[in-house]
Amino acid sequence: MHLDGALEGVVKVESDVSVGRTGQLTGLVKCQNLFVSGHVDAKVACQTLEILPGGQFSGEVICHDFIVDEGGEFNGQRYQLTDEGEVVALEKCLEMLKNDQLFSFAGVELAVDK
C-alpha cells in the first residue's frame, strides 16, 4: 500500500506500507514493513520501520528492525520486537539490569573465576 494523500484511521494489512513525501498517516497501523518519506503520527506494529530522508515519525512503534536514515526524524517511543515475538521496552531492560537478570535474558553466560 502506498499513500501520497492524507489518511486518518486504522490500517491493517499483511503487506508493506509506504508513506510518500506528500503523505500523512494518522492513527493505528499494523503491517509487515513501514517506509516513511512523509509524515506519520501513529501507533505502529511492524517488522521494520524505516524513516527515509525527509520522513517524520511521531508516536509509538513495536518493531524488530528500526532504521532512521540521515535527514529522517523520529519523535516517540520504540519497543523492540524480539525474534521470539516478545516486546521489550528500555525501562524493562533497565529494571532487569538492576536485578542482575540482563545477561540471562540475553542468553549470555558469564565466566566467573572461582
Results as ranks from 00 to 15, higher is better:
Asn99Pro: 05
Leu81Ser: 01
Asp100Lys: 15
Gln56Glu: 11
Ser18Ala: 09
His64Glu: 12
Gly27Met: 03
Met96Pro: 12
Ser18Glu: 11
Glu14Lys: 15
Ile62Lys: 10
Val11Cys: 01
Val40Leu: 05
Glu14Arg: 14
Val68Arg: 04
Asp100Leu: 14
Phe57Ser: 05
Asn99Cys: 09
Leu28Thr: 15
Asp16Pro: 02
Arg78Pro: 01
Ile67Ala: 08
Glu73Ile: 13
Cys31Ser: 11
Ser18Cys: 09
Val19Cys: 00
Cys46Phe: 05
Val44Met: 00
Leu52Glu: 08
Asp41His: 06
Asp100Cys: 12
Asp16Lys: 08
Val88Ser: 04
Gly5Arg: 14
Leu90Glu: 08
Leu28Asn: 10
Glu84Ser: 15
Phe35Ile: 06
His64Arg: 15
Asp16Gln: 04
Gln80Gly: 05
Ala89Ile: 07
Gln80Tyr: 10
Lys12Asp: 15
Arg21Val: 13
Leu7Asp: 03
Lys12Gly: 06
Lys92Asp: 11
Gly23Ala: 01
Val44Cys: 05
Val19Thr: 02
Asp16Thr: 02
Leu90Thr: 13
Gly27Lys: 03
Ala89Val: 07
Gln80Val: 08
Glu14Ile: 12
Lys98Tyr: 05
Cys31Gln: 03
Val17Ala: 00
Ile67Cys: 04
Ala89Tyr: 00
Asn75Met: 09
Leu94Met: 13
Asn33Gln: 08
Leu97Tyr: 11
Leu3Trp: 08
Thr26Met: 02
Ala45Pro: 01
Gly27Glu: 05
Arg78Glu: 00
Thr48Arg: 14
Gly72Ala: 09
Gly76Phe: 10
Asp69Tyr: 07
Val88Ala: 03
Cys63Pro: 06
Glu84Val: 00
Glu84Ala: 15
Ile51Leu: 04
Leu25Lys: 00
His2Gly: 15
Phe57Gly: 02
Gln24Asp: 06
Ile67Trp: 02
Gln24Trp: 01
Asp4Phe: 04
Gly38Ser: 06
Glu73Ser: 14
Val13Phe: 04
Ala42Lys: 06
Val29Asn: 00
Cys31Arg: 04
Gln32Leu: 03
Val13Trp: 02
Gln80Glu: 08
